[in-house]
């Protein structure tokens, strides 16, 4: 069975880019969310193997979404996708339970490297 990924980003453009990278490697995109609140809801519904999470989004930030998700699912595997210049937010997200991060603009190989590492974690 293929690995199921939930992609969270407020820009459709970014979601498309990430989805293309992952689909090409055989991942299944089980859902896309454009806000933090949507992400939490969709996580409950789809129970994905992996989440890629933008940080700054309307409605609820990616960090709050990570907190919500980790509270209910402590083993959730979340990869933060951040733009440059958000060091402190990334650190906060990791503290909240995100496993790793990639920085936009990213190389596909960089995304896949992080994804691979997270999925191999216990």
């Amino acid at each position: 069975m293929s690995t199921r990924v939930l992609i969270v980003d407020d820009a459709i453009f970014m979601r498309r880019m990430i989805a293309d990278i992952l689909k090409k490697e055989g991942f299944e995109i089980c859902g896309e969310a454009g806000t933090g609140a949507q992400a939490v809801t969709m996580f409950r519904e789809t129970q994905p193997d992996l989440v890629t999470m933008d940080i700054i989004m309307p409605d609820m930030s990616g960090i709050d979404a990570v907190r919500e998700i980790i509270k209910e699912y402590p083993n959730a595997k979340i990869l933060m996708v951040s733009a440059m210049g958000q060091q402190s937010l990334v650190v906060e997200a990791i503290q909240a339970g995100a496993k790793d991060f990639v920085v936009k603009p990213f190389q596909p190989s960089r995304v896949l490297e992080s994804v691979g590492r997270i999925l191999n974690m216990k």
């Binding site: 407020d10 820009a11 970014m14 880019m17 933008d54 700054i56 733009a83 440059m84 603009p105 990213f106």
Partner: peptide
């Protein structure tokens, strides 16, 4: 968001 999109 624009920043991240443009950079990508």
């Amino acid at each position: 968001t624009l920043k991240g999109m443009a950079a990508s």
